[in-house]
Design a binder for these strands. Sequence first.
DNA 1: ACTTGTTTACTGATCT
DNA 2: AGATCAGTAAACAAGT
Length: 260
Amino acid sequence: MPRPSRESYGDQKPPYSYISLTAMAIWSSPERMLPLSEIYRFITDRFPYYRRNTQRWQNSLRHNLSFNDCFVKVPRRPDRPGKGAYWTLHPQAFDMFENGSLLRRRKRFKLQKGEKDNLNAELAALASFNRAFLARQAGAPSAPAPMPSASLYTRMCPQLSPEPTELPEVATMTMLPRERPRRAFTIDALLEPDSPRLSPSPPQHQPMSQASVAMHMVPRLEFSLSPYALAAQRYHAELLQAAAHALRPCYLPPPLLPVA
DNA sequence: ACTTGTTTACTGATCT
DNA sequence: AGATCAGTAAACAAGT
């Protein structure tokens, strides 16, 4: 069966839930996190059906983002001003989809109260750190910015402990072994029709559609460190470097360049 | 004013 | 039948 594409769905409603569509969008981004407007754009670019009635489905999608614990709202970086936060997938939400299929969820992803509180506390700390960082940059006197205590990625990914004491080098970060998702989290795989359990992916003889070509540009995710942990780690590292640089500009190297 | 985010409520479909 | 999931509407708050 040919892989569904922009062409094959046409104006028909794709068989994916809003959660699946949002997960696809997030996973298609290099940093595995996107602002709401980019999630909208991903969906309307690939699925013409969603170019109509935008108010309706976008309201539903926002409802899903807020309502489901599988989506985590990450405060915007201070050096990337703009409206709204970034959204990412909770690493434990990997197993949410049965057999890796985006067509049907195994069960709702629900964080326990304590986990949720911890996460919210860390995100709040990050947000307040950002505010203090911006205030300092603007030259306003402010109380010392409370660093987010234990890094998000340590909290979210306990197997990463102990937290590195030095700033992590993003390019050489160690990917820790974890059970691989049963289906590769590439856009191709995500858009592939549900295949029978245990059957290998059929060979693709179809010429690639324009959409598929674009999708192939998305880097394949072959490691299994959680994307959220990865994004948070990178973000946190950049933040710390930028902060250190602002405080001691003649001593420390310049902040890392923003990732593409 | 508009966008983003949260919450509640309801309905229908599907699963157990 | 009851539980769970998904979709939708709507009200409201907050931020830009």
